[in-house]
Computed example of a mutant assay.
Amino acid sequence: MTEAELLAGLPDAAFRAALLLARIGAAAMLVPGLGEAEIPAPLRLGVALAIVAAVFPVLAPALPNVPDAAADAVRLVALEVLTGLWLASLARLLATALALALQTAGGLLGLANVLVPDPALGSGATALGRLGSLAAALLVLSSGLYALPLRALVESYALMPPGAPWPAGAAAEEIAAAGGACLSLALRLAGPFVVAAVLLNLALALVSRVAPQVPVFVLGAPAQVLVAFALLALLAPLLLPLFAGDLRAGWSALPGLR
């Protein structure tokens, strides 16, 4: 390739790189593990740029050239950002299941008064919910599960090439299915805590009925806290592998990996 041909192709190459960065960069801000609020945005952007540089030689030939109209270029970039956010949201929804499960456990077992702001659960998150968010991020990063959403993101170019019509109906169905899978997993993870809360409250009600002079409310609060921490210590070695297995199975079914 001559110098003149290289210079003539620079605008198209720059536009293709911008399209890659639009999808990959948008996903990098939200994808589990990499897109956590605790990770500085410049670091996430740096990782996105590194991924773009790695995949550019492979994906660039299939990307469109610079459109003649500026409106078409803006539309292409906007669709790429939307696609990246959509794919990352599918992965993020399932990863939120552990935080939702422990948030439910904290509310049922008397730990709802200790509120800790959490990017996923909001300002009303309990301490256990926040612990679930951090544990999920640590598990994703330490086990290498973060590679599955990133691989799905790269493979998505074959499934949804830039410039193709946006499949709004299918995208909405995928989001609904991911939300259902998140709730299903969260309920299974929170099941032991729900059972423990019901049994504990039944026991306290029975004590109140049999011995009205016993200060049930005074004794019940510390008992709930003790049961919560005992259950968490007992079940954590079982819940984390279950969560990781479901996460791997769910992320293996992301668009582009099926």
Rank of each mutant, 00 (worst) to 15 (best):
A244W: 08
P42H: 02
A171P: 02
I24Y: 09
V225W: 03
A8K: 09
V198C: 00
F15G: 12
L49F: 01
P161E: 04
T96Q: 15
P67E: 13
A176Y: 08
P67M: 15
E155R: 15
P165K: 10
P165L: 13
D118R: 03
Q224G: 04
L145P: 10
E3L: 13
Q224D: 03
S252A: 14
A71N: 06
A152H: 04
P149Q: 12
L111V: 03
E3T: 05
I51N: 01
L34P: 02
V66L: 15
T126L: 09
A190H: 01
D246I: 00
L238K: 11
V66R: 08
A177R: 12
G220V: 01
L231Y: 02
L200A: 11
R23S: 07
P119A: 09
L111H: 12
A71V: 13
A236F: 11
D118G: 05
G9K: 09
A18N: 06
G179N: 05
L45V: 11
F243V: 08
S89L: 14
A112T: 07
V52F: 10
P165M: 13
G110S: 08
A147M: 08
W86V: 02
A62V: 09
L90A: 11
R16M: 04
I175C: 01
A13D: 09
P162Q: 06
L138T: 10
V140P: 15
L128M: 07
V194W: 00
L257A: 05
P192T: 00
E80D: 02
V198Q: 00
G9C: 08
L134F: 05
V195T: 12
L6V: 06
F229S: 06
A164Q: 04
A176N: 05
T104Q: 15
V58F: 10
A176T: 13
L257T: 04
A168R: 10
G35E: 05
A211Y: 13
L93A: 14
A54Y: 15
L234G: 10
A211V: 04
R75G: 04
G110Q: 06
V58N: 05
G9S: 14
L85G: 10
L202H: 05
L202M: 11
L34E: 06
P237D: 08
P241A: 06
L232N: 10
A4L: 12
S133I: 00
A50S: 14
A4I: 10
P64C: 09
A221Q: 14
A177C: 03
V140I: 15
P57Q: 13
L128Q: 12
A88P: 11
L109F: 00
A48K: 12
G33Y: 02
P40E: 03
P212N: 08
A91C: 11
G124H: 02
T2Y: 00
L93F: 15
V154I: 14
L134V: 14
S252L: 11
